[in-house]
């Protein structure tokens, strides 16, 4: 509950920083979208790239 409140306050601050004013109803809907997207980004940040480097080229120095 405490974590939820903190996230909500942070979202409110983001809106204030951009000078965006919302009705209570719009705020709740936007916040719901925000929470969903936060979860997606946290998954994206945890992605493992250790076996992925498509631009890597392997040169054989003996050639």
């Amino acid at each position: 509950m405490k974590k939820d409140l903190t996230t909500k306050e942070y979202f409110k601050k983001l809106l204030e920083d951009k000078n965006i004013k919302l009705s209570d109803e719009d705020f709740e809907q936007s916040y719901l979208s925000y929470r969903n997207f936060r979860e997606s980004y946290s998954n994206l940040l945890n992605e493992d790239f250790s076996e992925f480097e498509p631009r890597q080229r392997i040169f054989d120095v003996n050639e």
Binding site: Y10, F11, L14, L15, K18, I20, L22, D26, Q29, S30, Y31, L32, S33, Y34, R35, N36, F37, Y41, L44, L45, E47, F49, F52, P54
Partner: peptide
């Protein structure tokens, strides 16, 4: 209400999404 849900995305997060796109 959908677009504002994307507020606060950091450059690190955008780059992570972009790199995931390449992968």
């Amino acid at each position: 209400n959908r677009m504002l849900g994307g507020l606060g995305v950091s450059s690190e997060e955008y780059l992570a999404a972009s790199r995931n796109m390449s992968k």
